[in-house]
Amino acid sequence: MYQLVDGALDRGAIEAAVTTPEHGAVLVFVGVTRDHFEGRRVVRLSYEAWDEGAITEMRRIGSEIEQRWPGARVAMAHRIGDVPPGEASVVIAVGTAHRAACYEASRYGIEQLKARVPIWKKELYEDGASWKENLPS
């Protein structure tokens, strides 16, 4: 499951997509919009995507995870449009047979998404706005 959603993300459905009796470890990473940046209050975030490119790149990351950690299952959803602070902007669920691989694969998923997937974020403050670039981790 790889989705861009203009609206609240359904964590339960994303988790369910990777949960099977074969997958003894499931991790759900949730990225939540922050209400502050360097002392400024963030009133809203706005995400936009190159839709086809973002879905393609998320699928590619999922395939990489399945190759590096055989048997892993992956689901990713990212929000687009306006998001108030405190809500989920991205949810990545990974299921593996055992926990060690699950932690590694989950981390790989979010780091690669932030580095590669063509999604852009604008932070709107009480007194201005700025487009945020992800820095290399």
């Binding site: 190159w50 990212h78 932030k114 670039e133």
Partner: peptide
């Protein structure tokens, strides 16, 4: 044209 990404 794709600016530096900012997802997540």
């Amino acid at each position: 044209f794709l600016p530096p990404v900012g997802g997540g």
